[in-house]
Design a protein around this nucleic acid. Structure first.
Lengths: 174, 174
DNA sequence: GAAAATGTAAAACGTTCGTTTTATATTGGG
DNA sequence: CCCAATATAAAACGAACGTTTTACATTTTC
């Protein structure tokens, strides 16, 4: 495990658990086990570090969504929250914390959300055997809602979303 | 308009637009048009100010949800995002920004979300003429999802959630 | 019209912020 | 074996953080 990977892993955990702005560079350097000089050589700045974290998280999250049915999509989310916990969407959280005014972060969020939207759309199309943009938008909303509601309703929120999605997909098939 | 109201109004706007942690006390005092001494006499601390903001927002938000049908619930959300914009749920955002480690804030969020859950449950019951906890959970998730998705999908996310809710409620009636 | 309450401006508290610098140690490749 | 390259520790940068204090002005109230 190289230093950059170690840094990004430590940073993701701290940003996720305590927030982006609330996490100081001293905590970052300590958790990553490196000097601030080395940290800045690898990341450039705090905002760029956040962007690196988001990029890595996008890779890891999207890899889990390589499925072909809407039901498998929510099963994947159930796995995700079991492993990663229920602290909401790190992308939208980082956007909110910076007021959308940090270019590197805003850009990483936009890229991820567009890829995510496209993935949901593809999964719906694969499931139905045809495109259905309106239904895909509804499934996306259930997915986001499950992520958000799970913060205070727990993992049950995901299974509730899963069954709602099954009803909507059933309606699309008939 | 008394000073406390003026302070809370200014603080809500700044916290919402730029984030809680990213908003310094100097910006707060300037926007509220008062000295820091007066601000601290009214709010006590920054965390208590955030709790006051959340309490006021709860009052304003819940007042809009005094409806009797699920469709009216989403119509109310459409009005809300038209007036307040699409920056997500300030309650869950404040919780995330503080890592859930600030008691005043965590408590305000818990209280609001429980009241919100109860309201959704009541609206579903009023709409169906009977309790339906599972359906209420699904509607809650659509509501949260619309709020969250609207950040990057715009206000259309709310109407998509609205039509999904209509399908789920139709299913519950038959 | 004195007293109490409530406001102001401004400086200072010690701490932490993100970032850079200086100087030194370790280490892998030609 | 030496030389880049790459790491380290530690101090320092000015600025901003949340908060408190000092000193003074204004308004409200009995």
């Amino acid at each position: 495990m190289n230093l950059t990977t170690k840094l990004i892993t430590a940073a993701e955990k701290l940003f996720d658990r305590h927030g982006y702005m609330a996490t100081g560079m001293d905590r970052l350097t300590e958790a990553a086990g490196m000097s601030s000089r080395t940290l800045y050589k690898h990341a450039g700045s705090k905002a760029q570090l956040m962007a690196l974290v988001l990029s890595e998280r996008d890779r890891r999250f999207m890899a889990r969504l390589e499925v072909e049915s809407v039901d498998a999509l929510f099963a994947a989310l159930e796995d995700w929250v079991r492993v990663e916990g229920t602290r909401g969407c790190l992308f939208l959280r980082s956007l909110a914390e910076t007021g959308g005014e940090t270019p590197e972060i805003a850009q990483a969020v936009t890229a991820h959300k567009e890829a995510f939207r496209q993935r949901v759309s593809d999964v719906v199309a694969s499931d139905l055997g045809r495109e259905d943009p309106a239904r895909a938008e509804q499934i996306l909303i259930l997915f986001e809602g499950a992520t958000q509601a799970a913060i205070y309703r727990g993992a049950d929120a995901v299974s509730a979303a899963r069954s709602a999605a099954a009803i909507l997909m059933g309606r699309a098939r008939s």
